[in-house]
Design a protein around this nucleic acid. Structure first.
Length: 485
RNA sequence: CGGGAUGUAGCGCAGCCUGGUAGCGCACCUGCUUGGGGUGCAGGUGGUCGGAGGUUCAAAUCCUCUCAUCCCGACCA
């Protein structure tokens, strides 16, 4: 049952009114992050960092399950290292931060603060790899990187951000391509299962690919305002980096061979993706699997007398029971706030399930459970609490994905004419599925005229050739277009 | 990096035009009260007015520069 109407948080801009202001409001007021003293550098506060930790824990587990291991490489990259791969340096130099002074003295060679670690890691690989027996190399790193961005937004685009970057070397081109696609699929599954964010996936256009890559694959999610957000990338780097950094191995035929490499990463941007995908006018809605608090217990004091006599002990007992069952629970025992205030407060923070325990419930040996997404209320007998709470969390997780998927589908449109493309992009935006000739000039013109870019070119299913929505030349299969974050 | 806006207490704002030693609401602290959707009352704490320089007897207020944030455009996880 759906109870009271959503009380609008008086301090959060309604999502329907101003999406981007709403986003900033909830990120700040739910205490996920705060602005630091340097432009584009945010502080990730404990509540936001706990989400990142949940993401890290599971993503790390899944990455290791593919055979990769973790390592750590230096933050500083000598200028000459970065310059070895031409396309790569051209792509990244505009957003590089440089250290030129150390210990009070001018450095002989400037050091880049890593914008990504291909240069550093490949240089080390050149020392470590000699034989086909050394392959594959499958290393992942969790770290921070810095990219000097002009326009920044908390989590979505910050000057410094946290991520994982995997870097692999393979003896064959096929194996590298398999790895690239495998990691993309791992990312897709992770984002859908953990963050309940549905994505489209496939290779990028030439124009949108990673600097120096042969092919870039990406997952892209559609946000509530109809703009697409790149949520993860996996690059097939071919032999480019191997050649540039002098990596060679002796293969089984005693031939000196340059290995094929890949790299793949996901970032703290995922937190922004989850916020934008699921939130509502009352604030955040966190997917249970990454929510720092899955169940918040709000004790209701008796009309007369002391809540510490009966209510609080019961609430503590419930807290212990839930925690023992592996549910991340929190007891809000602040006696300075009213229950109603606490409801609004925890809703704003996106806690998936609220548990109310008051005099009436103690009497009836029950608790009240309320879902964050639709505020549906259920009365649960105390003995069945753990299974009921678990089931509620599970179904909420599933429903969030379904709801987001429905939204994405409803805002994905197959367009046949450029007029339709333009009017649609000027109006509701969303994903537009359109045939495209693969010509970069045409792509650039589309961006000029509609602000939309090629997000991915999905490969599954039969290729149905068509004609380019803009110029009419042949198109092997349609691409997904959207305005991007 | 261009165009626009903003910056005064933790948050939201007034004061600036017309210079004269800083105010309101919320939050916070104390006490009582209240408690199943943001209780109420009373009393209190807190600000070198984003920063630097200038004009002036005197600057939150006028001038210059600078930094940050937001919005709109060109480049990017």
């Amino acid at each position: 049952m759906n109870n009271e109407k959503a009380p609008t948080l008086k301090d959060v801009t309604p999502r329907s009114q101003d999406y981007s202001q709403w986003y900033l409001d909830v990120v700040l007021k739910a205490e996920l992050a705060d602005y630091g003293p340097v432009k584009g550098c945010m502080v990730i506060r404990p509540y936001g960092y706990a989400i990142w930790e949940a993401i890290q824990a599971e993503l790390d587990r899944r990455i290791k399950a593919t055979g990769a291991v973790n390592a750590y490489f230096p933050l500083f990259i000598p200028k000459s290292f970065l310059e070895k791969e031409k396309e790569h340096v051209e792509g990244f130099s505009p957003e590089c931060a440089w250290v030129t002074i150390g210990g009070g003295e001018q450095l002989e060679e400037p050091l880049a603060i890593r914008p990504t670690s291909e240069a550093m890691i490949c240089s080390m690989y050149a020392k470590w790899v000699n034989s086909w027996r050394d392959l594959p190399v499958l290393i992942n790193q969790w770290c921070n990187v810095v990219r000097w961005e002009k326009v920044t937004r908390p989590f979505l685009r910050t000057t410094e951000f946290l991520w994982q970057e995997g870097h692999t070397l393979h003896a064959t081109e096929t194996e590298a391509e398999e790895r690239t696609v495998m990691m993309l699929d791992l990312y897709r599954a992770f984002v859908e299962e953990m963050l309940a964010v549905p994505v489209v996936h496939g290779p990028k256009s030439e124009r949108e690919k990673f600097a120096g890559a042969k092919t870039t694959y990406a997952i892209e999610a559609l946000m509530g305002d109809g703009k697409a957000l790149q949520a993860g990338t996996s690059h097939n780097l071919g032999q480019q980096f191997g050649k540039a950094y002098g990596i060679e191995f002796l293969d089984q035929n005693m031939q000196r061979t340059v290995p094929w490499s890949t790299s793949w990463g996901m970032t703290t941007r995922l937190i922004g993706a989850a916020v934008m995908t699921h939130g509502d006018d009352s604030g955040l809605i966190l997917p249970p699997r990454v929510a720092p608090i899955q169940v918040v217990i709000v004790p209701i004091p008796p009309r007369k007398g002391d809540w510490s006599v009966e209510i609080l002990p019961k609430a503590r007992e419930i807290l212990a029971t839930l925690r023992a069952a592996g549910i991340r629970a929190h007891l809000d025992d602040r006696d300075t706030q009213q229950p109603g205030y606490k409801y609004a407060d925890w809703e704003m923070r996106g806690v998936p399930v609220r548990l109310e325990i008051g005099p009436k419930d103690v009497e009836k040996q029950q608790v009240v459970l309320v879902r964050r997404d639709n505020r549906a209320k259920s009365f649960v007998p105390m003995p069945g609490l753990v299974p009921a709470a678990s089931a509620l969390l599970t179904s909420l997780q599933g429903d969030l994905l379904l709801r987001a998927r429905r939204f994405t589908e409803e805002n994905t449109t197959r367009v046949a004419s450029y007029d339709e493309f333009k009017s649609r992009m000027a109006d509701k935006r969303g994903f537009l599925v359109a045939d495209w000739c693969r010509d970069g000039a045409c792509e650039a013109a589309i961006k000029d005229e509609t602000k939309a870019t090629v997000r991915v070119i999905p490969q599954e299913g039969e290729a149905v050739p068509g004609t380019c929505v803009r110029c009419g030349r042949p198109s092997p299969r349609p691409a997904y277009f959207a305005q991007a974050y």
